[in-house]
Design a protein around this nucleic acid. Structure first.
Length: 269
DNA sequence: GCTTGCAAAGACTGTTTGCT
DNA sequence: AGCAAACAGTCTTTGCAAGC
């Protein structure tokens, strides 16, 4: 490529108009650098370039050096945090892909980097996949598919993860919250009747205890339910130990009540 | 006669789905 | 996005058959 400005005619008025427009678009400092580079390419000396664009000779040398080295980006003062005219640099996103592999979720992060999460680590899997979705690195469809949830519910869980800790991703279902038939009143009667039957040597069978409970509370509970709660409360083993324990307590002096009495006397003194 | 294991039904609550 | 109904998971209650 050969350039000769000898054959080019210049019009000062056109130049002023064009510079005015260009400066309004690119900014004056950028146009100065473009003009300086153009004059340099046309063979002008650095000192004459400096005089033409109003820049110290040393600055022109730096400008030409950086332009030849870095290209377009050197047209601006790069100490600034952002460019006023260059397009935003697009960081090429790596395509993160998800799929199941044997018993784990395989996450391909690109550049030969992978993550494997055991599928049975439900909370870990949910936390990582939903975090990737919240960072918009994977689609809701791919996460929903791997988690076995609908896309709608996946979005809700992702939102929940952003608002609170990962523990809230666990299944919160707790089932029936209280014993609606065998409530505390029935349970206390059950313990009382079972103990009374055990101490007096009567039958502690579920039918005998149930009959006593139903009579006392005017209730109608099934013996099978009472058996279920006898087992739950682990009452079965006290039928044999309770009578012995009571006999033992009867023989042993009550130290606690005596010390209480002594304490009262001392206090009165 | 009584207990035990199993299973079905009920109660409660989370999840999914379809509609607006 | 919001809502409601249907569906589904978890725990309690209870009936039944088998075994001790």
């Amino acid at each position: 490529m050969i350039l000769s400005c000898q054959d080019i005619s210049f019009n000062p008025k056109l130049s002023n108009d064009r510079l005015s427009i260009a400066c309004s678009v690119f900014g004056e400092s950028v146009i100065k650098r473009i003009v300086g580079m153009s004059l340099y390419l046309l063979g002008a000396t650095r000192s004459s370039i400096g005089k033409a664009i109003g820049m110290p000779k040393e600055s022109v040398k730096t400008l030409l050096k950086t332009l030849n080295r870095d290209g377009l980006s050197a047209l601006e003062d790069r100490r600034r945090s952002h460019s006023t005219f260059l397009p935003v640099k697009q960081v090429k996103g790596t395509d993160i892909t998800l799929h199941t592999h044997e018993d784990s979720v395989h996450i391909d992060l690109g550049y030969n980097r992978f993550m494997d999460i055991p599928l049975h680590h439900h909370l870990q899997t949910r936390t990582i996949l939903l975090s990737l979705y919240n960072a918009r690195l994977v689609s809701v469809a791919s996460v929903a598919n791997l988690l076995g949830l609908t896309q709608e519910h996946t979005r809700k869980l992702a939102q929940r993860l952003q608002q609170s800790d990962a523990i809230h991703l666990c299944d919160q279902r707790k089932g029936q919250q209280h014993d609606y038939r065998i409530d505390n009143k029935v349970k206390s009667e059950l313990i009382q009747q079972y103990a009374a039957h055990a101490v007096t040597g009567r039958s502690t069978s579920s039918s005998a205890v149930t009959e006593a409970i139903n009579n006392r509370l005017n209730w109608n509970v099934a013996p099978r339910s009472i058996r279920h709660h006898i087992n739950k409360l682990d009452l079965g083993k006290i039928a044999k130990t309770l009578p012995d324990l009571i006999q033992q307590l009867k023989k042993t002096p009550d130290n606690s009540s005596r010390s209480n009495t002594e304490h009262a006397n001392t206090t009165n003194l």
